[in-house]
């Protein structure tokens, strides 16, 4: 465990909790893509099935359970408790266009052709594109609430820190996982455009709104 990995995990945790608290405190999930949140719940579920088969550390186990628990809580708030505030008309990204190719790719390119390993690979590929419905929603409405942009920033920061973590691990441990690295690079690239808007607008106190 290096500091980049630790702060990456904490940034990921911060993103998840920011979103959960935002919805809970405002009693509204307006502007949040329920589809992205369902995809993240699928990502955590399929990736952390190894909770049942292998123990790595108390840290590892507890973080996995927190991620899974929070992601299901978020989906529950969006689709059940605060369903009336869910902006379904703008959340129109076709997720089957992500799930089907990602599933096919996981079957074709994986470390080991076993059920758990294919599901793990599926979760890695799916995570790299799971934010697309959220970004699509922002591009449709043309704006995002500031707290939503903080959520996205923490998600992107988590990815960037994981990239540094992999460089670190490659140099100091000789470890690399090509599937995670390629998917992680793709995922980080998806946030670049958003990072630019975040730095040039949100950090200067302006609301994130896209030119018409």
């Amino acid at each position: 465990m290096n500091i980049f990995r630790l702060f990456g995990d904490l940034s990921h945790l911060a993103a998840i909790i920011i979103l959960l608290l935002k919805i809970w405190k405002s009693r509204s999930c307006a502007g949040i893509s329920g589809k992205s949140q369902i995809l993240f719940a699928i990502v955590f579920t399929t990736r952390y099935l190894d909770l049942l088969t292998s123990f790595i550390s108390l840290y590892n186990t507890s973080m996995k359970m927190i991620y899974i628990g929070c992601s299901y809580a978020t989906v529950y708030l969006i689709y059940a408790k605060f369903r009336a505030t869910y902006d379904g008309n703008h959340d129109s990204f076709r997720v089957e266009f992500l799930i089907v190719p990602v599933g096919g790719l996981a079957v074709l390119i994986n470390h080991d052709f076993s059920l758990l390993e294919i599901l793990w690979t599926f979760s890695i590929y799916l995570e790299s594109v799971a934010i697309l419905p959220q970004l699509f929603m922002i591009s449709k409405t043309g704006e995002a609430e500031t707290i939503t942009t903080h959520y996205l920033f923490c998600q992107g920061l988590y990815r960037a820190l994981y990239l540094i973590n992999w460089i670190w691990r490659f140099y100091f441990e000789g470890f690399f996982d090509m599937i995670a690295i390629v998917a992680g690079v793709v995922q980080t690239i998806l946030y670049c455009d958003f990072f630019y808007l975040y730095v040039t607008k949100v950090l200067k106190g302006k609301k994130l709104s896209l030119p018409a």
Partner: peptide, 10 residues
């Protein structure tokens, strides 16, 4: 492609 079935990252 390094085979590594024990995944220690989140």
């Amino acid at each position: 492609w390094q085979r590594r079935v024990l995944h220690d990252e989140l």
